[in-house]
Amino acid sequence: MLELPLVKGDPFHHVMEAILDLSDVAHVVCTTRGLNLLAVDTKHLAIVSLLFPAEDFKGYTCDEYISIGIPIRDLVNAIRCGDDKDTITLKVGEENFGTITLSFVSPEKNTVDYEFRLVDAKLERFRLPDRHFLRSKYQGSVKMPSVEFRRICKCLSNFGDEYGVISVTDEDLTYFAKGTDGDVYVEYKQQEEDTTIFKIDVREPVRLAFNPKYLNTFAKVFTLSGQVKLFLSKTHPLMVECKIGQKGRIRCFVAPKVEP
């Protein structure tokens, strides 16, 4: 049995809204320890994962391992229909396993229940990297304010939606996007005196090409946290991470474009 309390605008809802146009299904695994959401875009160019430990989720109840595929559009449409003051609970019961119920209760105790079929997520073939993998395969990381990151992603995506580049050295971080009528180039210098807001940590310079559209889609999710951390690799997808609550986190991976 699973009971997942939701609030309009919380991280779970935020992630669902962000990936609405990229993916049809969110693969959600729940255990007594918490929730893990995974969604891949339909072209398999990007993946987003949300980890939410039970202690960060007030009212979270799960007494067994549950792996379900949630139809994103149905869920988002239902949440949009609800009132901001409603208490929302996503339920998967033993007697109706194959469907999920989204229950809305108003402050006056009026209720609206949505019931929809679960779908096959088909994500069993994906294995996301752990911390050890990140340390060994990623040559550089950059911590920066999430609002700033979103601004850059929006700028890159508006300018050129097909080809962008992130480069990092121990002195600076640069973003580049190629548009049809020109290019945009953004540079951040590492400041010696203050590394709490912006910090570069690289073993060797990294340059990574990608599609800015995907990063822009995820960037708005990262504003749930004050800071984002970018992990760059010469051989693996770009990863962006932010912390949510005490121990929760959101990660997204964007597959690179490589020279033939």
């Binding site: 891949v40 398999h44 597959a255």
Partner: peptide, 14 residues
């Protein structure tokens, strides 16, 4: 002239 890689190229279970 770049090749767009896919996530499955990197994170598939063996």
């Amino acid at each position: 002239p770049c090749i767009q890689k896919r996530i499955i190229d990197y994170f598939s279970k063996k």
